[in-house]
Design a protein around this nucleic acid. Structure first.
Lengths: 140, 140
DNA sequence: GTATCATTTTATAATCATTATAAATACCTA
DNA sequence: TAGGTATTTATAATGATTATAAAATGATAC
């Protein structure tokens, strides 16, 4: 536990981010909960143990993490921004029934297109929607 | 021109959508302008020739088109929903400098992942961000 | 052709995620 | 400890989207 907190502090320091209590907790949340939480989910969970936490802090911190490449935005629905501490290229599948988001591997080479040979690519996103196996079986 | 309108009416009828003037014009806009417009862009352009047009109609109609698979949502930024009359699987590249959105081909087979073999996939989305050749050269 | 009913559109208000602002707090250095 | 900077907080403002109810349009039966 202490070790883990220490790791989080190190991660922040490497990115020249001052490790405030709020930042450590938000980073910890992202790293431990790998369920691509929305801003609101992060806020509502963390405010339980940090009653003075402000939504603005959550927004500011996530934006800071994004700019520092500690987290990436997962845009699947236009009305909820999610965050993911796993910044490598991978796909997201969202079940339209239960809302769960699953990761899946993406072959980056396969995504290459000649049409983009003169483009400077800074971000690659792949997401699918549909019904996950669990919901598919239940509904049948 | 008349022929084209007639085609649009046919497209709507095939989906069992009554071809009202507003629906024809919005579909025409999507089909002719292939620039993945936002709802606001569609509204602001069309209200010029249809002064009584309401934003609600644009929202309702686009939602109807989406459900009827006449258009697909292009979610790239979380604060602007775009629409595309091209419903086949293809990628979108958004230039972070000029905002232009480019289409590029995507090899659907290459996107296949064993991890999703038990999932029912209804929608596949690929989008990249970066700098387009034009902006890249200008800024250099 | 007119009355009736259903559909579509419109205008407006409500909602909700996000951003902006300014004050309060915490942190750092001299 | 004092003074200055960075961070957090509370609150208000913004802006896209959705909800609601009235008005307009269109279709059908008589």
């Amino acid at each position: 536990m202490n070790q883990k907190i220490k790791d989080l502090v190190e991660i922040l320091k490497e990115k020249n981010i001052k490790p405030s209590y709020q930042r450590i907790k938000i980073l910890e949340y992202l790293v431990l909960k790998k369920n691509h939480p929305t801003v609101d989910e992060i806020f509502k969970d963390l405010v339980k143990e940090m009653p003075t936490l402000s939504r603005a802090t959550v927004y500011n911190t996530l934006d800071l993490f994004k700019r520092s490449e500690l987290a990436r935005v997962v845009t699947i629905e236009d009305n909820e921004t999610r965050y993911d501490a796993e910044v490598s290229v991978h796909g997201h599948f969202k079940c339209e029934n239960c809302g769960t988001i699953f990761d899946f591997p993406v072959d980056e080479k396969a995504l290459y297109s000649d049409a983009l040979k003169d483009f400077m690519i800074t971000e690659k996103n792949v997401y699918f929607k549909g019904i996950c196996p669990k919901c598919h079986n239940t509904n049948k």
